[in-house]
Design a protein around this nucleic acid. Structure first.
Length: 284
DNA sequence: CCTCATTCCTGCGGGC
DNA sequence: TGCCCGCAGGAATGAG
């Protein structure tokens, strides 16, 4: 579930509570959580002792903590990852994967992840932008995002518009929830071929993507259960503002037609069949 | 350079 | 009551 608004909410918390602190010890409770760290868990632990965190940054759905000396800890929440700040005497979470203890009296930083799709690794010299995630595009909230280049790139692609929105090398930060919500706002069907879209249509969609991401960030993100929480364990409330995602059979808030769920890329696509029609003759 | 299917993982809820 | 299965899905990977 964590998409840009949720990851950014976590980043803000990390920046507030971890920046400037020096790591004392690290414990890897589950090796799978560091599987992307090629040198292995023991190296991960040894390399971080004594290092000071100098910030908290984000690229799309990836986070990284720059360290003194120029390296960085890269993190991805996957489906169910959480960064939690917890006093040392707090009982371990069932799905605790990695623990960071600092050389001060402050709380531990714990990486908790039920489904273990997420994980952490160290990027050598990656403080500015880790090479491991340099292929991830900027997100639409990034001031340096190039709107014209994005519009042109989308129109050059030969695929469906939702696939394009989910392609993190084209635009980052968007996942299944916000893709569906932006497409509903733009009245576009998920299968609309990108090469049939006009420049204004893509530009308009980009505007809706920005709007929905911004609104969700203000709400502290979307959560349906306790899986997505900020560093203090609190849930966002944007799920109350969703128009199509997860609403199969419920009336469209705009026209009343029942929301439809289609199988899509081994997951789901939610649309309003009236607001986002798919042409009968196959011509868009 | 594309495009796209497959794979990883755990817990929950529906059906029988 | 309990078992099985589908579903949730980000992104790396490799096939074509």
């Amino acid at each position: 579930m964590p998409e840009l608004p949720e990851v950014e909410t976590v980043r803000l918390g990390l920046d507030q509570w971890v920046t400037g602190r020096t790591i004392d010890t690290v414990e890897v409770a589950h090796p799978r959580a560091v599987r992307r760290h090629e040198p292995g868990a023991a190296h991960f632990v040894a390399a971080l002792a004594g290092r000071t965190v100098t910030g908290a940054r984000r690229r799309g759905k990836y986070l990284w903590l720059p360290l003194d000396g120029g390296d960085a800890v890269i993190g991805h929440l996957g489906m169910s990852g959480q960064f939690l700040l917890r006093p040392a005497d707090t009982p371990d979470e069932i799905h605790l994967r990695i623990r960071f203890a600092f050389d001060d009296d402050g709380p531990q930083l714990r990486f908790v992840d039920q489904r273990t799709f997420g994980g952490l690794s160290i990027s050598a010299g990656g403080a500015e932008l880790p090479a491991e995630i340099a292929h991830i595009a900027r997100d639409p909230v990034d001031l340096a995002f190039d709107d014209a280049a994005f519009v042109a790139a989308v129109r050059r692609r030969h695929t469906g518009i939702k696939r394009a929105l989910l392609d993190q090398t084209l635009v980052s930060g968007i996942g299944n929830i916000y893709a569906d919500e932006a497409l509903w706002r733009a009245r576009l069907h998920w299968a609309r071929p990108t090469d049939t879209m006009t420049r204004p249509a893509v530009t308009g969609l980009l505007g809706h993507v920005r709007d929905v991401l911004g609104e969700a960030l203000k709400a502290g993100g979307t959560s349906f259960d306790a899986l997505y929480v900020n560093v203090n364990g609190e849930s966002g409330y944007f799920d109350r503002s969703l128009h199509v995602y997860g609403r199969e059979g419920e009336p469209c808030t705009r026209c009343g037609a029942p929301i439809r769920r289609d199988p899509f890329m081994n997951r789901s696509a939610y649309t309003c069949p009236r607001c986002q029609p798919r042409p009968r003759n196959g011509r868009w």
